[in-house]
């Protein structure tokens, strides 16, 4: 226990009981995992786009030598590799066709995954849903109910881009000043409502321009499978500029409607950030400063927490952990008072 932390034997006992549950304390592991899994998603998107090329080679040539003659050595290596992998599990052609799509609606080995926004948009415009499409919602919603906005830190390929932009910002901030703006989070509810409105008015294609990860998926698919530049590249650049000039992960926090929706669904998620109030320092606010989602674990906030693990890395007393959400409420006299903030915005609720 930290010497400056308050002590109360009764609370300590409660804490001890709750802490016995599954917990992750290593922030570095989480940060590493989040980058790794998002990189995997990007690679997966590229592989799915390349799958079109593979199918074409398969049906058009179906012989390594012919493939090489038509499109070069690199493509032959890709063709042979894909062929070996798929042949192990069955008919390569059929097996390859069980995968497809992008971040918006994807099938992996025949299992569909649906974006909640896509489902909302279809419900608003078309009023009908196929069963497979609706069942595809299970995994994203379950993820949100279990881990809150974990999608944003572990799956979303656009947030990887924003993560790298935030690192560039941090490096450049040695010489330049970068503002850290805050706006009210109602903005992304507005984007959600406006997006659905425009989708009903014109068509679902509008989400290509509004949703960062859909824009990334479109750009990757257009670039690799069709060899063209997508219009979605423009909106990616816009979002990147927002992030670069206005604040760290500004788009994720204030613009992206999916993140807001997942944060809303997962505000009572099973796993979330936990704070050991006894070890928490009164004078320290570093977890709230470092949080890309502007959540304050200090105040036991966990709405919008994407379990990225950055606060676990920065916490000087290691009082934070990711585990099953606390069911016991800590008496107010134990919780540390809010320190005076030097910069940044006052904490916001949803």
């Amino acid at each position: 226990m930290h010497p400056y932390a308050s002590s109360d034997p009764g609370i300590l006992k409660q804490e001890h009981l709750v802490n016995a549950a599954l917990q992750i304390r290593s922030g570095r592991l989480l940060v590493f995992l989040s980058i790794l899994s998002r990189l995997t998603v990007v690679v997966l998107l590229c592989a799915l786009a390349l799958l079109t090329e593979y199918l074409n080679l398969k049906i058009a040539y179906n012989h390594p030598r012919l493939v090489e003659l038509s499109s070069g050595k690199a493509m032959r290596m890709f063709y042979e590799a894909a062929d070996t992998v798929f042949s192990k599990f069955g008919d390569p052609m059929q097996l390859a066709q069980t995968n497809g799509g992008m971040t918006w609606s994807i099938r992996l080995m025949g299992v569909p995954f649906t974006d909640p926004i896509a489902a909302l948009s279809v419900l608003a415009k078309d009023h009908r849903m196929k069963l497979g499409f609706a069942l595809g919602l299970t995994a994203p919603l379950a993820l949100a109910l279990l881990f809150g906005r974990a999608f944003c830190a572990y799956i979303c390929p656009a947030s990887l881009l924003f993560y790298f932009i935030s690192r560039i910002r941090r490096w450049l901030s040695r010489w330049f000043y970068f503002p850290e703006l805050s706006i009210h989070r109602g903005f992304s509810w507005g984007v959600l409502a406006g997006g659905i409105g425009v989708a009903v008015w014109t068509g679902h294609g509008i989400w290509t321009l509004i949703l960062p990860y859909f824009a990334v998926g479109q750009t990757v698919f257009h670039g690799i499978a069709m060899g063209t530049l997508s219009i979605a590249l423009g909106s990616i650049l816009l979002f990147a500029c927002l992030d670069f000039f206005f604040g760290r992960q500004f788009t994720c926090r204030y613009v992206c409607p999916t993140g807001r929706l997942l944060g809303f669904v997962g505000q009572k998620s099973l796993f979330s950030i936990r704070r050991n109030a006894q070890e928490c320092l009164t004078s320290c606010n570093s977890c709230a400063e470092v949080c890309p989602m502007k959540v304050s674990p200090k105040l036991d906030q966990s709405v919008d927490c994407s379990v990225c693990g950055e606060c676990l890395v920065i916490c000087p007393t290691q009082c934070l952990s990711i585990g099953i959400r606390k069911v016991v409420s800590i008496p107010s006299h134990v919780a540390s008072p809010i320190p005076e903030r030097i910069h940044g915005s006052p904490p916001q609720s949803l």
Partner: peptide, 10 residues
């Protein structure tokens, strides 16, 4: 059509 691109992909 939601523009998911699965048809183009397969």
């Amino acid at each position: 059509c939601i523009g998911c691109g699965q048809c183009a992909n397969v």
